[in-house]
Amino acid sequence: MIELRQLCRDFLVGDQTVHALDHLDLNIDKGEYLSVMGPSGSGKSTLLNMLGLLDKPSAGEYLLNGTATSGLKEEQRASLRGGHIGFVFQSYHLIPRLNARENIELPLVLAGVAPKLRQPRVDELLARLDLVDRAEHIPNQLSGGQRQRVAIGRAIVMEPDLLLADEPTGNLDSKSGLEVVTLLEELNAGGITLLVVTHDENMGARARRRLHMIDGAISRDWQTDSAESKSILTAKPPTGKPLTQKTDGKAPGEF
């Protein structure tokens, strides 16, 4: 479903070029559940932005469902985002003037879906997300967990193939966090491809496939169910920098 070929993303900081993604290769199959971990600045969020078509690579190719995205116009990228990709952000990114129902409904509104067709879909999601009695509340009147549930509702209302979550539990207490994770996993069980960027070891460990990133490259990529770590440390090291161990001193995959 997703294929990254030698994907690069460079940023200019001052007069220095920083390689946020460094010749990255990655294949993700439909229905997979991945977590991406790694120290700050390792390129996790940049990877997520690339996968979400929010940012353009400096080099390399990104194929989404077989379509090469590098040659696409901005309008086409927007249309792919709207139809195939859902986002869940750490800071929710809800529109403060819209209530829970309207925030969930927003992608349908933007896509020009008729109100008659929107209503049942949103009602269904509100029920599923346990937000029925919160439907008319604006984000300020909701708890963190409720806000994130609204954000998830908004992310899946268009029935995307791919759900990208950037630190979805980062602002939540452990109970709400667990609720949100469980919800995301239920969605994955329903067939949606789920990729979670997280600092939370526990959350990362729940994914069936785990990626560990360092300095813009994937340092480890392994399946947890088989508990067999597929080290790619032997792959070409990132340009200009030696490979380093994880900052907390643990070996990748060891918690």
């Binding site: 979400g52 901005e74 309008e75 927007a78 792919l80 985002r81 139809g83 990114h93 933007l110």
Partner: peptide
């Protein structure tokens, strides 16, 4: 940014 992420075209 959000509207664009949700697929709203620039126009």
């Amino acid at each position: 940014g959000l509207l664009k992420a949700l697929g709203l075209p620039a126009r």
